[in-house]
Design a binder for these strands. Structure first.
Length: 194
DNA sequence: ACCGCGATGCCCT
DNA sequence: GGGCATCGCGGTA
């Protein structure tokens, strides 16, 4: 992480969610906590597409205390708690009023950072919890940069943990690059490259 | 390799 | 009260 890094700003996140998800791969998520910088390279994300998307928290336009952040400005963190023990980090996308987001599922961890092969592991390794819900993705606390690293080939699969056989469950809204840090290994034959 | 399940607590109906 | 955008372990193979 050096002076060449370019911060991904609000205009980056204000675009179509699937495009944001794809573009986030190979970018670097940075967390600064207690004066130390923890980071990891994004290798697995998922798009959640709002009211029409039956797997999204904002399905049907649900506007509740939990989903409120997704209805607001793009480029903020949406952090929620699940299964009694895990925090999950999302980036809010699209303009205000369109409750869409990208879930961070895996990172290639930087030096001194623990395993990040799963959404709960990412937040544990980077010290992310409800205190960061709703914060803008700007330094110093939590932000994403382009460090100029080469972009790898992107693969798409159905989203993890989304049950059912309907259209939304089958949609290829999980975006990954081939990495040992993924939450689940790629099965080459079933994979569709783009 | 796959499958089942317990942990644990918040959210929403 | 049911379900959950999870994880890690233990069993079977």
């Amino acid at each position: 992480m050096n002076g060449e890094d370019k911060l991904l700003d609000e205009s980056f996140f204000a675009r179509e969610t699937t495009v944001v998800a794809r573009d986030l791969l190979d970018k670097v998520l940075v967390r600064e906590i207690d004066g130390q910088k923890l980071w990891g390279r994004l290798v697995e994300v998922e798009a959640y597409l709002g009211p029409q998307d039956i797997a999204a928290h904002s399905k049907g336009g649900r506007r509740t205390p939990r989903t409120e952040v997704m209805f607001g400005e793009p480029g903020r963190a949406y952090v929620y708690f699940t299964y009694g023990m895990h925090w999950c980090l999302n980036f809010v996308t699209r303009e205000a009023g369109m409750p869409q987001a990208v879930l961070v599922r895996a990172l290639e961890p930087g030096p001194g950072v623990g395993r990040c092969g799963g959404p709960g592991l990412v937040t544990r390794a980077l010290g992310i919890d409800r205190a960061l819900n709703g914060v803008p993705l700007v330094p110093p606390d939590l932000y994403v940069v382009d460090d100029g690293a080469p972009k790898r080939r992107v693969f798409v699969t159905p989203r993890i943990g989304v049950q059912g056989t309907g259209r939304w469950e089958k949609r290829l809204l999980r975006y990954v690059v081939d990495s040992p840090a993924l939450s689940r290994p790629i099965r080459r034959q079933r994979l569709r490259a783009r």
